[in-house]
Design a protein around this nucleic acid. Structure first.
Lengths: 191, 191
DNA sequence: TCCCGCGGATGACAGATGTCATGGGTGTGG
DNA sequence: CCACACCCATGACATCTGTCATCCGCGGGA
């Protein structure tokens, strides 16, 4: 519904034409190629296995002439960082005024980058993700309230190892327990 | 951005006119009255103190002739229940096709109720919220990973009492610890 | 009147969690 | 070759968490 609504909004602009819409990240590259798109507008949170950031990287790799605009619900600095690493040209949050959307499309077509300066500052001041891949796995597995034993079974680890990884993750996030660590890592876009 | 986009979408329909838009729940009743709206379209998750459900109840109380359509990101059965209790005429989730939005507006104007039958069945089979107000408070306070001592201080309770309330909440949600209880209660729309 | 649910509290106990020291193996870069 | 980071594990320990029994006071129904 939101996708179709944003398409309607862009369609009202005389100089912009919506040439394709897809629901899943896996379908982005194909649709963009078939429709001859000049700009791809992607949400980070999408159904399916592929996130909008993955789709952005795929577009950048396979259709380098296509500009990528990321629109997301959550203005997490970590998202911005990862979007830039994935090769995005613009990064917008959904609670920005609607006019910024069309404006961003026009500007990336002129070769400009479009980034909220406040968010950019936050992303830079925050520092990079300090978690190792395994710490991320364990933290993600702990997010739903699983017991250490469950996590150990799911990741084929010993229970003590799970405790060790969680302990380091808790310290790196400056949290006091796993729940706080999960919340902080989520806010920072590290999961 | 999403609000303006949905307004653009509805504006494309010949028989529907968007007469007002507001960002915060507190402004809904005033704007609906001033604009002479026939239908109020409300999101549950809104900035400001007033949720969309509160706004729905306010509209129902002060402008009884105005139909209320709830649109929400999360199709939680508890949300549906609370929306109906607040006097909503329609309940839509945002990942439904865009056409359903205009269709719902037309149908509530004809006096019909619009509810996804799958969600209705889920809401009925799930049973009502079993939590007492205090259990809800404590569970909400525990959601961010606070220690028992923090929660006790924040709610002016003893630490043991916090443990007791959490224990009963954990049993009522059939969870194994507080984190799981929080997740389940959130999914059910009990918080 | 009596019972029951709710709010609030205490104490005791078992189990889960977080920390630390310490060990091993692997791979990568200087 | 050595240092270093990462991965995985164990054991010990302190603390936090979850459960249970038990108590008090209050108010609403039967």
């Amino acid at each position: 519904m939101v996708r179709e609504a944003l398409a309607a909004l862009l369609g009202l602009e005389g100089d912009i034409e919506v040439v394709a819409q897809v629901a899943r990240g896996e379908d982005v590259v194909g649709a963009a190629r078939d429709a001859g798109a000049q700009v791809a507008l992607l949400d980070i949170e999408m159904p399916g296995a592929m996130t909008g950031l993955d789709a952005a990287a795929a577009v950048r790799a396979e259709l380098p002439q296509v500009r990528v605009v990321i629109v997301t619900t959550f203005g997490r600095p970590g998202y911005l960082r990862r979007a830039m690493e994935a090769g995005a040209d613009a990064f917008l949050v959904k609670d920005a005024p609607a006019g910024q959307l069309a404006e961003a499309v026009r500007r990336v077509l002129r070769g400009e980058k479009v980034i909220d300066p406040v968010l950019a500052a936050a992303a830079l001041s925050e520092g990079a993700d300090p978690l190792t891949p395994r710490e991320r796995d364990v933290l993600r597995a702990a997010a739903d309230g699983s017991l250490n034993a469950d996590i150990a079974r799911r990741l084929h680890l010993s229970e003590g190892t799970v405790r060790n990884y969680l302990s380091t993750a808790i310290q790196k996030t400056a949290a006091r327990n796993r729940a706080e660590a999960v919340r902080i890592a989520l806010e920072r876009g590290w999961l």
